[in-house]
Simulated scan of single mutants.
Amino acid sequence: MMTRQERVLRNAVILLAVATLMLGGLLFWSLRAMALLKGETAEGEASDIAAAGGQPVTDQDWTRELKRKHGDEVLLSMLNHIVVGKEAGALGIKVTDEEIERELKRGMSGYGSEEQYYSQMESELGLSREELREETAYRLTLQAVATAGITISEAEVDDYLEQNAESLMPKKQMQLSIITTETYSEAGEVMDRLEQGEDFAGLAAEVSTDEESRQHGGNIGMVEEQDPFWPEDMLKTAAGLEAGDIAGPLQTADGYAVIRLEKLIVPEQPDQEELRRMVRQQLKLEQAAPLQQVERDLRAKYDTAIYIDNSLQD
């Protein structure tokens, strides 16, 4: 699970990334449908693609529904890729493989592993590794086009770092399990039973008052060490544990808790050069026009035309 890291620096970039990747997933998911709309059905492909209760669903039914619901978004995304590519070529902008890999690595921060990151992108956004790479390249290209000609002084970077130094450092990530109780004595009994060898997940399912985590054996997933949604003292205690350690009773807003640290991830601290590059890019984006406006302006600049009947989108 992804947690909130480097909030001050990365909020705008993360929000943009999510929006772009979701649209990108829609684009790639719908490419076959758009091809079919042009009459490019694969040779020998059956007309019926599904059936329920003896009633078939044809390629035409499917693609018509895709076009009706998502046609505008997919078409605009395709046009944006074209015009941004043209503008990047005119400006001599080319995103390198190193930049793409660096951005993907940043996106993986907070996930248990690279495989977990790609698996979640596949399940949530429908993007394969290659498709995710292509959309990352597009996003970086769009940002480079939007910020072309904007310069940030070293003094501006220094000022930003001075004001946001602590917020820029990635935080520890902790995978926690929890058992909550209404009273201190109940939490003490939980500690006693755990010390006698009872299974944490089984005990959480039996006695925990937290409905959501109880259904998962007490597991609450990955939590950042400064997550504002959990008690500060509990997170400080958890950050000082080793994997498998149990602590409690700990006071919470609604009672008491016993926690177990399942896994601790201490992220690699960015070097100064990388940190300054990230700050410089963020400051450039703050001065640039909104990225959707950049795409809109580029569609106008390159004489974009749409030759479809708008009623198809009704």
Rank of each mutant, 00 (worst) to 15 (best):
S119M: 11
K38H: 11
E156R: 14
M121A: 13
Q5S: 08
A33S: 15
E182F: 09
Q60Y: 03
E101G: 10
L298D: 11
L15F: 12
T183C: 04
Y256S: 05
E224S: 15
R280Q: 08
R193Y: 05
L264C: 07
S77R: 14
M22V: 13
G92W: 04
I246G: 03
E73V: 06
G85N: 10
P270F: 06
G112Q: 03
V145M: 05
A288F: 03
I179L: 01
E224F: 11
W230I: 10
S153N: 06
Q215N: 08
A42R: 00
T41C: 11
T151K: 14
D233S: 14
R102E: 15
P290Y: 07
E43Y: 13
V258I: 09
H70L: 06
Q251Y: 13
K86T: 06
N310P: 11
E135R: 02
T147K: 00
G248R: 00
N164G: 05
T181H: 07
Q5Y: 10
V83T: 02
V207R: 10
P270C: 08
E162M: 09
L15V: 09
R106E: 12
L104R: 05
V294P: 05
L203R: 11
L161N: 02
E166R: 14
D61G: 02
M78F: 12
D158N: 08
A238C: 05
G188K: 12
E242S: 12
V95C: 07
G25C: 01
P267V: 07
R280F: 01
E130Q: 11
Q173N: 13
E232W: 08
E206C: 08
S177K: 14
L36C: 09
I152N: 02
K301V: 04
V8W: 04
S153M: 02
K105D: 00
V266E: 01
A201K: 08
Q175R: 14
G240Q: 12
Q272L: 08
K236R: 12
A165D: 07
V207I: 14
I49G: 00
D303Q: 06
D199C: 09
S109L: 13
G188E: 12
L142M: 08
L79E: 15
P56E: 15
E286T: 04
A247P: 01
A165R: 15
R280W: 07
Q281N: 12
G218Q: 01
A253K: 15
R68I: 04
V8G: 10
E268V: 06
D48H: 04
L250D: 05
A148V: 06
Y256L: 04
V279F: 07
E101A: 14
V18F: 13
R214I: 02
E295P: 01
E45F: 06
A247S: 13
E211I: 01
Q272M: 10
G54L: 03
F200P: 00
K105G: 03
L21K: 11
L23P: 01
V13S: 10
G85S: 09
K86I: 12
S109K: 11
S77F: 11
V57P: 00
E295S: 13
Q5N: 06
T183K: 14
E99V: 00
E131S: 02
